[in-house]
């Protein structure tokens, strides 16, 4: 498969005329994208910040309750915080509730915003397109990489919180927020399920960031716009006059992951959240595709 041959002008869909690379090749592209993304200092710094949040929360709760005191004074603070001292597993839920509104979407916004615009900004996008992948395939690979980062970021918070919780606080059977008891094993299962739901909650932001990333040639501009949108939408979600629009904001049902700690689980908001994220992925994913495949790449 020589890349030196001139490409016929009549070829409209790249890579379609007898040049379709094997699926293994796509896998190779994905792997190289994943490795590049995770190896960046920026990504490592973001993950370190995410891992530090549960440590901070855990130590703060430990210090505050040292004298047998009470944390969360009558229900203030992030969800589940008053239960941490009794069961370290609750640190996982508190840490996810604390990072989901800002830290996690910010990290995803940075990675997603950088995906296309960063390559364009540093002049490497045209070389990526030389590879026989085609733009659609490259975009899909980029999006898959961002989704993998969503999962990775969430798992970093979860694992960090689990370790800190196990070190600082007792573990054991836990009480669901409905007042029923479940075993530690089931609690751990629910924690994992919650981590997956939180990762899925970021699918919408990832698609939005990817779309913004195709609009501009500057990586910084794309990251700033995506993170700015995350903040703006969450502020708008607090304005009561906009209540008719709010169910369609990607962040509206984020905290519904707490419904997994009810017994029986209350699925209404959870399914709404997942449906909404799928909708955002479809709308902004296809918009990113339309933009990216129709755009002139000059850098």
């Amino acid at each position: 498969m020589s890349r030196a041959e001139p490409v016929p002008l009549s070829e409209t869909v790249p890579g379609s005329a007898g040049r379709r690379p094997s699926p293994l090749w796509t896998f190779g592209l994905l792997r190289s994208e994943l490795v590049t993304t995770v190896r960046r200092w920026r990504t490592l710094a973001l993950l370190a910040v995410l891992a530090a949040v549960p440590v901070l929360v855990g130590i703060a709760v430990k210090i505050e309750t040292r004298g047998g005191g009470d944390v969360g004074h009558g229900g203030q603070g992030p969800a589940f915080i008053s239960q941490i001292t009794n069961n370290g597993l609750f640190l996982v839920f508190t840490a996810l509730a604390a990072t989901l509104p800002f830290f996690l979407p910010m990290a995803v916004g940075v990675v997603a915003g950088d995906a296309i615009a960063g390559e364009a900004g540093s002049g490497t996008l045209r070389y990526l397109l030389v590879a026989p992948a085609g733009r659609t395939r490259l975009l899909l690979t980029k999006y898959t990489t961002v989704l993998a980062f969503c999962l990775l970021a969430t798992l970093v918070v979860t694992v960090s919180a689990l370790i800190v919780g196990a070190l600082l606080f007792p573990l054991g059977d836990l009480t669901t927020i409905s007042g029923t008891r479940i075993s530690f094993g089931e609690g751990l299962g629910r924690a994992l399920l919650i981590a997956l739901v939180v990762a899925a909650s970021l699918v919408g932001v990832a698609a939005l960031g990817l779309f913004v990333s195709t609009l501009t040639g500057s990586g910084i501009a794309a990251m700033a716009t995506t993170v700015g949108l995350v903040i703006t939408v969450q502020i708008l979600d607090q304005i009561p006059q906009l209540h008719a629009l709010q169910p369609y904001f990607f962040s509206h049902y984020w905290l519904s992951f707490a419904d997994l700690m009810r017994d029986p689980v209350y699925w209404d908001d959870l399914t709404k959240n997942l449906g909404l994220q799928a909708l955002y992925a479809a709308v902004f994913g296809s918009a990113a595709w339309a933009r990216f495949t129709a755009k002139d790449i000059s850098a």
Partner: peptide, 14 residues
């Protein structure tokens, strides 16, 4: 060589 799709797009635009 420049990415062929960009060739395609530029030529088509021209």
């Amino acid at each position: 060589m420049a990415p062929y799709e960009s060739d395609d797009a530029v030529d088509a635009a021209r």
